[in-house]
Amino acid sequence: MEQNLQLQAKPVPKSVQIKQYIAIGLFILICCYSVITPIFGNIIPYDIMESIAPNIEIWKTYNIFNHFLYFLVYVIIWGILLTITSNKATKIAVILYIVSAVLELIFISLGLLHNGLWNVGLIATGIAYFYVFSTIIRANNLSNSDKAWLSIYLISMVMSIASLGRDILILNLADDTMGDLFEYIPGRMASIWGVIFSIIVCVASIRLVKCGAFSGNYDSTPTPKEVYSPLNKHFAALLITLVVVYGMWSILYSNIQTIENILN
């Protein structure tokens, strides 16, 4: 608690504050885009998208476009954050984030060749992002409230890894008769939840930029080695949640006909 008070006592320089506000503005911009798209549809019209890449399935073109847009904005944001980190561990985490973002874009492009690469690549980069946020949380003396908000990022990564894994494990194994039932899973309610969660993530991103990790007061004292270790409770949370969620899904999908008969 004393350390928190010390951190807050240091005034954030004016130049750092300006960078923080630019990063927050970009985060809000990307949040608005991710809220608008599921509600009002894609901003770029279907015809234009199809004319760019006529040989590729249209959802893939949209997906690559969105990923490219996110990539550009996130690299700018994290590039700004890189200049205002408060210690070495945070700096390394931010560099890892940017490297993962580049890798993600490469995997997405390779996904055009094979669907499997797409999902596997996203899972791998998802785990890298998870490590980044885990390191930022553990390497800084954050207030309880900041920690609670930053854990939203970890939760979001866990659930996206879980759903990508489901696509590989279950959807690829499912036979065609199940197809209709799965159609509804990424349906309207799931996208409404996506919108709600995007807003929560937007608040979390404001807290991320304003927290002690990006206050600009660079602390050159070496960070303890344990901070870099992935053997921590965040990774335990990732593994346990995956086990729990896959357990529930496998029970659910193996009894799919019985469950559907309840309503009919």
Binding site: A148, S151, L154, I155, V158, M159, A162, S163, L181, F182, Y184, I185, G187, R188, M189, A190, W193, K233, H234, A236, A237, L238, I240, T241, V244, V245, M248, W249, L252, Y253, I256, I259, E260, I262, L263
Partner: peptide, 27 residues
Amino acid sequence: INTPTLTASLSMLTVLIGYNVTESIIA
């Protein structure tokens, strides 16, 4: 009305439970 199937709803419910399980361990 194009409602989700019961399986889809339960699947969504497991996702919501997943969010809380993760948060429980992290928090």
